[in-house]
Structures are given as structure tokens and as C-alpha cells.
Design a protein around this nucleic acid. Structure first.
Lengths: 217, 217
DNA sequence: AGCAAAATTGGCAGAGTGCCAATAGGGCAC
DNA sequence: GTGCCCTATTGGCACTCTGCCAATTTTGCT
């Protein structure tokens, strides 16, 4: 009396199914570009019907944005940190070290998150990435603040942001192009940061309005 | 007696039509993302049939790659330069100035070229952007070489590449976020470069293999 | 066991892409 | 000036992908 007709599919709880789809989508979107991944691909690999994706995320694009948001939760920029004990140099050194540690563990994910893609300014994507970087900058500034008297001026934020760019590029030289060792990246990041804060920042703040002209050397 | 039935469309020379389509495609791909631009959009704005796009470029993606190639011909990284007269500092200062000048003129295009996009490593796009940046690094190294004894070591290339990242981020602070003036970016770039070459690079080269371990501080 | 809520499926409609055969400019030979 | 031929250009067909929704199935609860 075939009591159980052997269910053809399993019914999962809302959040669980959602998470499962997100995992697959994250993998595929990390491997290939947005256009090169179809919702059918995601559905097939997740073992569900394509319509279910739309039930949970509405649209392919929204699913994509969800993936991006999850991905940039990982610090895409240098060195957050907590309580500073010791001099600025020590604090920075430890922060950089912790950050490189994280990078080494999540190499693939991080590379996918910072991998520059095509052109065409996608304002939403840009906003998400920008927010993530800005938060990283905030954390770093908060950590440094006790050491430098200056509050979070525009110049400080900009310099730290520039440092983020340097840190990303340098990390790529380690993880992707293999031209630097981890130790070298560490040295590069620590010394650069100290130089930027102690030497470059004061100079930048010292540039007065007359030098802010748009033309000429 | 209606001699000329008034041609319904004009027949252009191969290269000319091709260029015309590229101009439109470049504009649209710079404004919106790849997925948000349809071949119909491009064809309509170019005033041609959609099929013609495929005749010239084969595929939407190939057309896109063509646009990207053209776009990154513009130096996406700092400061090429020619013959150095004067000290390193003067050469760098002038180079940075010339570069900022170019940025100011081509603000929109440059922003489109470096604008961070989505995830999903698109290896072809990545290769194109990477080549462009690498060439910029080469030019910069060639300009600096007379001043530093060291040849183009891996460390030097990596440090200059890191500098490129810093320069891009700093320029965005000027052009996009408006937190720095042009003069401030100039100062930031010149001083940072000198610091990197004179102070940081030697330290990075001095990191011996024992420090190159993957773990630990 | 039966019911109801909700998770899941399957298929339909519209849009976008790739392709190719047919058409029509326009330069050139005569 | 006229006609011919080359090829730039068009228009439409087939296929894939996305968004949507009604129908179906599962499962917890009474």
C-alpha cells in the first residue's frame, strides 16, 4: 500500500532555501560575469525550478545585488581594528597583519569582490562597493584618531581612501600576480601608511586655495 | 520626373560606418552597464539596422570588448613621461601634472574606464584593463630608471603598481567625491611616489625570505 | 485523516541575440 | 549617360533568457 509516494521535491524553510540559492549564485557570479550567468544555470545547479528564484528574489538583478552585498561584507579594504595598545606603528602593523591573514584565508572570495570588471557605471553596484570601502575607511580612521590630533577632515578621509587603493593594488600583487611575498606586502602597507599620515597628509592639508587652481603646474 | 527615388539609407565606407557605430556604443556602454544596453538601443541611436552591428562586430560582446579596448587606450594609470631633465622630483611633478591635466579634460571617459563594476571575473575584460595598467607602469618605470640604479625588479614593478592603485583612488577623491582639490592631489601623488621609491621600496626589497612566511606576524 | 498555508513547479508571453538570405546603394566599365 | 556588379544594409526567423502567474505538491496542525 505505497504509503509514502516518495515526495518529488523537498520543502525547505524560507530562509534556508533562500540561503541555499544565494550560495550557488555567489559561486557562479564569482566565476563568470553577470551576463554570462543565466537564471537557468543558477536554478539547475541549485536543483530547483527557475521560477523559485523569482519567488525569492524577484529579479535576476536583485539576486545579483544580494550576492554583491553579501560579498562586500568581507572587508574589501585594509585594516579595521579595535583597541590600540602601543604606538601607532604597532597598531598599524598588527592591523595589516590581521588583514593579510584574512585575505589569505578568503583569497578566492576577495579576488572576486575586488576584481575590476567591465565599464558602464552601474550606480547601484557602485554605491554598494563604495559604502563598503567608506566603512573600512571609517574604521581605520577611528583607530588612528587617538594618535593624530586632527579630526576626520576631508583631507584625512581622502588620504585614507587613497591608501585603500594602494592596499588593494599591493594585495593583488601578492595574491594574483605573485610579485610580492606576504611579508613584503606587510612592509609596504605599514611603511606607506605611516608615510601617508606623518608626511603626506600634513603637506596635503597645507596646500592652500591658491594652489587649488585647475590648470598649470 | 522623379529621377532620384531618394535613397532610403546611405551607404558608407566600411571603416567609417564601423567607427560611427563604435562612437555610439562607447557612449551607451559608458552610461549604462553592459546588460542594460541592448543591441537594439545601439542600432537605433546609430540609425542603422540591428543586423548591421553583427555584420561589423559579430557579437554584442565583441563590440563591447572593442569599446573597452578603445577606452583604455587613454592612460588609466599615472604619468608616462619622456625625457627627464632635472631631478627625479621635478620629473615626477611634471608628469603628475600632465596626467591630472588629461584627467580634467577627459573626466567622463576616465571615470567610465576605471569605474568599479560588478563582480564576476571576466577574464577578457580583466586582461585588457590589466595590460593597460601594466603598460602605464612600464612607462613610469622607464622614466624613473635613470634615477634609481635598480633595474625593473619584481619589487619595483609591484610598488609602482601599488602606486597606480593609490593614484586612481586619489584621483577619484578629486573628480568624483570632491574631497580634494587638484592641487592637493598633485601634492599627494608626488610626495607619495617619492616616499615609495626612496623609503618604502628599499624596505620591501630588504624583506628576506624568512619574513616571507605565509602565517604569523 | 483532513485542511490550510505556503513552498515549488511548469508553462506562457515578451524581449534580446545571433544569423542569413534578400535587397538596394553607388562606384566603375563601357 | 547607362547598366552592371560588388557589397553595405536591411528585415525576418529561430533560439535563449527573463519575468510572471496559476496550478500543484508538500507539510504542519487540528
Amino acid at each position: 500500500m505505497a504509503s509514502n509516494p516518495a515526495p518529488r521535491w523537498q520543502r525547505l524553510e524560507h530562509d534556508e532555501r533562500r540561503r541555499q540559492i544565494l550560495v550557488v549564485a555567489r559561486r557562479l557570479f564569482s566565476e563568470r560575469s553577470y551576463a554570462a550567468v543565466s537564471t537557468s544555470d543558477i536554478a539547475r545547479e541549485a536543483g530547483v525550478a527557475r521560477g523559485l528564484l523569482h519567488h525569492y528574489f524577484g529579479t535576476k538583478r536583485e539576486l545579483y545585488l544580494e550576492v554583491v552585498r553579501a560579498l562586500v561584507l568581507m572587508p574589501s579594504n585594509p585594516v579595521p581594528l579595535q583597541s590600540g595598545v602601543g604606538g601607532l606603528e604597532v597598531v598599524i602593523s598588527e592591523s595589516v597583519d590581521r588583514w593579510l591573514e584574512m585575505l589569505g584565508r578568503n583569497r578566492g572570495t576577495w579576488l572576486a569582490a575586488v576584481g575590476a570588471q567591465g565599464l558602464g557605471r552601474d550606480v547601484e553596484i557602485e554605491a554598494i562597493l563604495d559604502d563598503a570601502r567608506e566603512q573600512a575607511v571609517n574604521r581605520l580612521i577611528a583607530a588612528v584618531e587617538p594618535y593624530g590630533a586632527a579630526g576626520a577632515s576631508d583631507e584625512l578621509r581622502a588620504v585614507v581612501r587613497a591608501y585603500s587603493g594602494l592596499a588593494e593594488a599591493a594585495s593583488l600583487e601578492w595574491l594574483h600576480r605573485d610579485r610580492l611575498t606576504r611579508g613584503q606586502v606587510h612592509t609596504l602597507l605599514v611603511k606607506s601608511f605611516l608615510n601617508l599620515i606623518r608626511d603626506v597628509l600634513p603637506a596635503v592639508e597645507g596646500v592652500d586655495a591658491r594652489s587649488a587652481r585647475t590648470r598649470t603646474a
